[in-house]
């Protein structure tokens, strides 16, 4: 037989690497395009009279809506398998993780299925956003207090 160290080396030798260049290029194009679409939408909302801050918030809502729709139609996962981080990192990925969990657990009921599982993938993101935000708030409070 083989010891752990040698076997790990053997695994490494035989495991194909991800095509990094191709993955990164696709992530760049998709991520960039989604951001650019966001920017165009923002200018559009400003043009129609929204304030700058509000228009960027509306962009977030729009992208979440579109992601939800594409996820429901079964298109999102087929784009994401090529786009990788390009659809994961924009708010589209966050929306997809919430929406896909919700759709997936429908069969287990609307309360214990959808209700509890809707957070399975997105829960950590929300938790750590709140947690780090809170910590920042405390630090900020004391910094402003003493300066």
């Amino acid at each position: 037989m083989e010891n752990s160290k040698d076997y790990k080396k053997r695994i490494k030798r035989h495991t194909p690497k991800s095509p990094i260049f191709k993955d990164c290029l696709l992530a760049f194009v998709f991520g960039g395009a989604i951001s650019a679409i966001g920017e165009i939408l923002a200018s559009l909302y400003i043009y129609f009279g929204a304030e700058e801050q509000t228009s960027y918030t509306l962009v977030t809502v729009t992208l979440i809506f579109v992601s939800a729709l594409l996820t429901g139609l079964g298109v999102f996962d087929n784009i994401a398998r090529y786009a990788g981080a390009g659809t994961l990192v924009p708010v589209t990925g966050f929306a997809n993780s919430v929406v896909s969990s919700a759709i997936d657990t429908k069969a287990e009921g609307l309360i214990l299925g959808v209700g509890s599982k809707i957070f399975t993938v997105a829960g950590p993101v929300i938790l750590y956003a709140i947690l780090s935000g809170s910590i920042l708030g405390v630090i900020y409070y004391f910094v402003t207090l003493f300066s």
């Binding site: 991800s18 999102f76 996962d77 994401a80 398998r81 759709i103």
Partner: peptide, 12 residues
Amino acid sequence: TPLEYGGQRAPS
């Protein structure tokens, strides 16, 4: 992951 979750599968 959920079926409609958009993820990439490793080559292995």
